[in-house]
Design a protein around this nucleic acid. Structure first.
Lengths: 236, 236
DNA sequence: TAGTGGTCTAGACCACAAA
DNA sequence: TTGTGGTCTAGACCACTAT
């Protein structure tokens, strides 16, 4: 997977300010030569940067590096994971609850499994610099993720699934909305009942198309902004 | 641009239920043969469908058609435009204000223009089936969009820019957040002061990289959900 | 083992920006 | 006119699923 490595290198170079002189990436032809790869490979790599809002394309002119930092924004285009999103700050987790239960009708439907399927149900509060950022209510299909304990749940569950269980992640459906906080979540976030909360519902699939994770995450609205960059070329 | 046309055809076919029998698109090789295009072209087209959440890929097995409708969700992956998003419902617009003013320091910074640049400032309320969905506060750079009147502002401004001014859209930066409603916006949306509101801040660029539009849109939190599908293959 | 999506190459031509 | 990104082709091989 050359293009992913190339994307990583380019991202690193941007971070190091290698392209500050003219705010542009090297041309496609240069990158082809420098890294000894094909045009296809270069474009795949650059696509990743475009999706993540690191550069923007101007046909006939170049790939321009973004200078805006958009501080405090979480990136909708990059992979989930607070640890990665806030790598220069302290990220911690408090596990509230771990239960094993059988899927009832409603959750079975959302998890694309049969009623009665064994599930893990986990509640966690995530902290940035010791201040509560979010509360997560998550289900995992036990047939796919056979074991979770408190130690595992305190760390990066996705890292565990990828690196320890050797499962490969595919894609995630996200629904974003906004509601008034209930009593319980408000307590965890240090906010008041009825205050706004930014909610992200994730359905996460393995690369074989099987859904293994369904979550509902309440964010502290005072500390949460999401950033995304969208191409508009194929607009009706 | 064959791949965009192909994407359009495939989208139409999915809508018509052509692939319901086995929930899959034809294989890449089939599509190559059927439409007489190259593999590259087919994959570009399918990528659009993946980004818009119409299909999901399972390597070695096929491109599966999604059956979930996700009713009431606006699609983050497709192009902006309420008219397009709610094509089977009545979309209307009330123009509150159109002003021409010169950019002050703060807005000049956001619009990437010099202080003193002439801007259109427009306030609109958008209705779905005669119920208020959102309030928009938008700036347009008058050097790029030289003329807007109330009639134009009542319709699709992006359509006007594309079709009448013949400008080509490039990409949009989006920031999503959540706040308490102020008095004015609450009035427009028929909600109470202090109620939650889902806010989308858009910075929209032409394909030549020039920013022409900066907006802040307040959505009625009771009627607003956004949907997006994300690939996770390049997760650290 | 056969079917199907994912990665990669080499090379051609088009569209747009800037000098 | 030159530089640079965007589209497209033809063909090879790899990785994963399903049987």
């Amino acid at each position: 997977m050359k293009y992913q490595e190339l994307a990583k290198i380019l991202k690193e170079n941007i971070k190091n300010g290698d392209y500050i002189k003219n705010d542009k990436l090297p041309t496609e032809d240069s990158l082809i030569e420098i890294f000894g790869v094909s045009r296809y490979c270069v474009r795949q790599a650059i696509n990743i940067l475009v999706e993540q809002g690191d550069v923007y394309p101007v046909q006939g002119s170049g790939m321009f590096v973004r200078q805006n930092k958009r501080e405090g924004c979480m990136n909708l285009g990059s992979t989930l994971g607070l640890t990665h999103e806030f790598e220069d700050r302290k990220v911690s987790t408090k596990v509230i609850k771990i239960e094993i239960k059988q899927a009832e009708e409603e959750i079975a439907q959302r998890m694309h499994c049969k009623p009665g399927t064994w599930l893990y149900y986990i509640e966690r509060v995530r902290f940035i610099d010791d201040e509560p950022l979010s509360v997560e209510y998550t289900y995992y299909n036990k047939e796919i993720v056979p074991y979770i304990d408190e130690k595992i749940a305190s760390g990066s569950l996705f890292g565990y699934i990828k690196n320890d269980l050797n499962l490969s992640l595919g894609f995630a459906d996200k629904i974003l909305l906004c509601e008034k906080l209930d009593y319980v979540s408000a307590g965890y976030l240090g906010l008041n009942v009825g205050d706004p909360t930014f909610i992200v519902e994730d359905d996460v699939y393995l690369s074989n198309g099987k859904l293994f994770n369904a979550s509902r995450v309440f964010y502290n609205y005072k500390k949460t902004k999401f950033f995304g960059s969208k191409s508009l070329v194929w607009g009706k």
